Measured scan of single mutants.
Amino acid sequence: RKWEEIAERLREEFNINPEEAREAVEKAGGNEEEARRIVKKRL
């Protein structure tokens, strides 16, 4: 699934746990840019 690939990239890029990465992607509706913004806000 594409969402899992996005979550994996976010996890590696921001050094967050898989659960946090998945939550961000879900919140963003699968949009990678939006997920990235969500993760950055949390850091």
Score class of each variant (00 low, 15 high):
residue 1 R to M: 14
residue 1 R to S: 15
residue 1 R to P: 15
residue 1 R to C: 08
residue 2 K to E: 13
residue 2 K to A: 13
residue 2 K to V: 14
residue 2 K to H: 13
residue 2 K to C: 06
residue 2 K to F: 13
residue 2 K to G: 15
residue 3 W to T: 06
residue 3 W to H: 09
residue 3 W to V: 07
residue 3 W to I: 08
residue 4 E to F: 06
residue 4 E to Q: 13
residue 4 E to K: 06
residue 4 E to W: 08
residue 5 E to A: 04
residue 5 E to L: 04
residue 5 E to D: 12
residue 6 I to F: 04
residue 6 I to G: 00
residue 6 I to D: 01
residue 6 I to M: 13
residue 6 I to T: 05
residue 7 A to K: 04
residue 7 A to F: 06
residue 7 A to Q: 08
residue 7 A to M: 13
residue 7 A to I: 15
residue 7 A to E: 08
residue 7 A to V: 13
residue 8 E to C: 06
residue 8 E to K: 12
residue 8 E to I: 12
residue 9 R to M: 09
residue 9 R to P: 01
residue 10 L to G: 00
residue 10 L to W: 01
residue 10 L to K: 00
residue 11 R to Y: 08
residue 11 R to E: 13
residue 11 R to F: 08
residue 12 E to S: 09
residue 12 E to G: 08
residue 13 E to D: 12
residue 14 F to I: 02
residue 14 F to G: 02
residue 14 F to Q: 03
residue 15 N to S: 09
residue 15 N to H: 13
residue 16 I to S: 03
residue 16 I to R: 01
residue 16 I to M: 07
residue 16 I to F: 02
residue 17 N to M: 11
residue 17 N to I: 07
residue 17 N to C: 07
residue 18 P to L: 15
residue 18 P to D: 15
residue 18 P to N: 12
residue 18 P to T: 14
residue 18 P to A: 15
residue 18 P to W: 14
residue 18 P to E: 15
residue 18 P to K: 11
residue 18 P to V: 14
residue 19 E to Q: 13
residue 19 E to P: 04
residue 19 E to N: 11
residue 19 E to T: 11
residue 20 E to Q: 10
residue 20 E to P: 03
residue 20 E to K: 05
residue 20 E to I: 12
residue 20 E to F: 14
residue 21 A to F: 02
residue 21 A to L: 04
residue 21 A to V: 04
residue 21 A to D: 00
residue 22 R to H: 10
residue 22 R to V: 09
residue 22 R to D: 07
residue 22 R to Q: 12
residue 22 R to C: 05
residue 23 E to F: 06
residue 24 A to T: 06
residue 24 A to G: 02
residue 24 A to Y: 04
residue 25 V to E: 01
residue 25 V to C: 03
residue 26 E to Q: 14
residue 26 E to N: 12
residue 26 E to S: 11
residue 26 E to L: 10
residue 26 E to T: 12
residue 27 K to C: 04
residue 27 K to M: 13
residue 27 K to Y: 06
residue 28 A to D: 00
residue 28 A to F: 01
residue 28 A to S: 10
residue 28 A to P: 00
residue 29 G to P: 01
residue 29 G to W: 10
residue 30 G to H: 03
residue 30 G to K: 02
residue 30 G to E: 02
residue 30 G to M: 04
residue 31 N to D: 14
residue 31 N to G: 04
residue 31 N to P: 00
residue 31 N to K: 07
residue 31 N to T: 04
residue 31 N to H: 09
residue 31 N to S: 10
residue 32 E to L: 12
residue 32 E to V: 10
residue 32 E to I: 14
residue 32 E to P: 08
residue 32 E to N: 04
residue 32 E to S: 05
residue 33 E to F: 09
residue 33 E to W: 09
residue 34 E to V: 11
residue 35 A to P: 00
residue 35 A to V: 02
residue 35 A to H: 00
residue 35 A to I: 02
residue 36 R to T: 05
residue 36 R to F: 02
residue 36 R to C: 04
residue 37 R to G: 10
residue 37 R to V: 09
residue 37 R to A: 14
residue 37 R to M: 10
residue 37 R to Q: 13
residue 38 I to R: 06
residue 38 I to C: 03
residue 38 I to S: 07
residue 38 I to Q: 08
residue 38 I to H: 06
residue 39 V to M: 04
residue 39 V to R: 01
residue 40 K to M: 07
residue 40 K to N: 08
residue 40 K to I: 15
residue 40 K to Q: 13
residue 41 K to P: 04
residue 41 K to T: 13
residue 41 K to M: 07
residue 41 K to W: 03
residue 42 R to Q: 14
residue 43 L to A: 09
residue 43 L to E: 07
residue 43 L to Q: 10
residue 43 L to W: 06
